[in-house]
Simulated scan of single mutants.
Amino acid sequence: MTILGLTGSIGMGKSTTAAMFEALGVPVHSADAAVHRLYAGRAAPLVEARFPGTVRGGVVDRAALGARVLGDRQALADLEAIVHPLVREEKGAFLEAARAGGARLAVLDIPLLYETGGEGRVDAVLVVTAPPEVQRARVLARPGMTAEKFEAILASQMPDAEKRTRADFVIDTGEGLEAARAAVRGIVERFGALPGT
């Protein structure tokens, strides 16, 4: 089974691209979705113990937690020490299930793949990209997003140009959904993972 890492900077179209792989029957594991599940489950008591008052009704309040860790390196490191091992555990179980199910290709959607050295844990990397003006418009359309927040997030991520030069595959999501779908299909075919092939 080939493990494909899917990554890209904020607003580049990772979630939409991941859904295209799923539509072709490729198993996909999303790190962000795993964190959401963990914040409503196993991670909640651990987060509350370290950051009292950040859990409401058994679920981590992301805004309250964000306010506690933003700009505090030690707090962020403590949070990562809680969450990352749990996400890795979920990812391991996902890959085991994909292998057991006979999948030829599995996708790991990892927003900070290069920033966390994740390229060493996958067989190939797909970077999604888009022109800067498309990226900016997408991100600023999100609820609660400000230009300042967007710039801060961008500053914390590896530049898009560098990600593209390091990638095995690049899809420009700014070219539209049909072009992206065709590119995804080409990658799936290349790994012999289309149903019936």
Rank of each mutant, 00 (worst) to 15 (best):
G41H: 01
V35G: 04
S9R: 03
G92T: 08
V122Y: 11
P45Y: 09
E178T: 12
T54K: 03
L194C: 07
R166W: 09
A33M: 09
R56I: 09
G117M: 11
T2R: 12
T17W: 14
V139M: 08
G41E: 03
D32P: 11
I110R: 00
P27R: 13
A40G: 08
V55E: 01
P27S: 11
D78W: 00
A31Q: 09
E22R: 11
S15E: 06
R42D: 14
D61V: 06
H84N: 06
R68P: 00
P85I: 12
G196K: 04
V47H: 13
R164T: 11
G41N: 02
T197A: 13
L154Q: 14
K163V: 06
R73E: 15
R73T: 12
E22Q: 12
L86R: 11
G101Q: 13
I153V: 01
E151D: 09
R88N: 07
R99S: 11
I110S: 02
A40I: 01
T17L: 11
R42G: 12
L108K: 03
R37S: 06
D78G: 02
I110P: 03
R68E: 15
P132G: 05
E119I: 09
G41L: 01
R142E: 02
R190H: 13
A67F: 05
L154W: 00
G192S: 13
P45L: 10
K149H: 05
L79E: 04
P131Y: 00
E178M: 09
V26L: 07
S9T: 15
L79S: 03
D172H: 10
A182F: 04
V170Q: 05
V127P: 03
V128G: 14
R190E: 15
V134L: 14
T17C: 09
G117P: 04
A75S: 14
V28C: 00
H29M: 06
L112E: 11
P143M: 00
G174A: 13
A77D: 05
F51G: 00
T7A: 06
K91F: 07
A31G: 11
A23H: 05
L76G: 02
M12V: 01
S30P: 09
E175P: 05
R104H: 09
M20W: 06
E96M: 01
M1S: 14
T146D: 10
V188M: 10
Q74D: 14
L79P: 02
E175D: 12
G92K: 06
A77W: 00
V122K: 11
D78I: 00
L154R: 15
G192E: 00
A19S: 06
K163H: 02
L86W: 08
E148L: 12
S9F: 03
T2I: 14
G196E: 07
G5N: 10
K14R: 06
D172Y: 10
E133Q: 00
P159G: 09
A49V: 03
T116I: 14
A141G: 15
L113S: 06
V83Q: 03
I82F: 05
M145R: 13
I171A: 07
V83L: 08
D109H: 03
E189R: 15
G92A: 10
A23K: 07
A81L: 03
R62S: 03
A183V: 00
K91C: 10
T173W: 07
T17A: 08
G176E: 14
M20E: 09
P111V: 14
